[in-house]
């Protein structure tokens, strides 16, 4: 599933990207495969969405969040060091 499919409050683990052009930039901003991500809220007009990654918040347009693949397994216990 994709990051844009999450509902507010839901958490998932980033598993990959579909956009070859933008994935480097997303990773540089902290959206790394294996990282836990939480959808915090949608903006008042429905888009963009705000997400929590590691210890910070990002605002990301839905069309861009659509390029981020996520998995909702909770078994993935990879420790997420947050600093």
């Amino acid at each position: 599933m994709r990051l844009s499919d999450l509902k507010p409050g839901e958490e998932a683990i980033i598993s990959g990207f579909t956009d070859e052009l933008k994935y480097l930039q997303l990773m540089e901003m902290g959206c790394i495969p294996g990282e836990r991500v939480r959808l915090l809220s949608r903006a008042p007009f429905g888009d963009p969405i705000s997400i929590q990654i590691s210890s910070y918040k990002l605002s990301i347009r839905k069309s861009e969040a659509h390029n981020i693949l996520v998995e909702m397994h909770s078994e993935d216990t990879r420790s997420l060091r947050q600093a």
């Binding site: 052009l21 933008k22 930039q25 901003m29 963009p48 910070y56 918040k57 605002s59 990301i60 861009e64």
Partner: peptide
């Protein structure tokens, strides 16, 4: 088309 509108809050 390459620009990302991801922004830190």
């Amino acid at each position: 088309g390459k620009s990302l509108f991801v922004m830190e809050m």
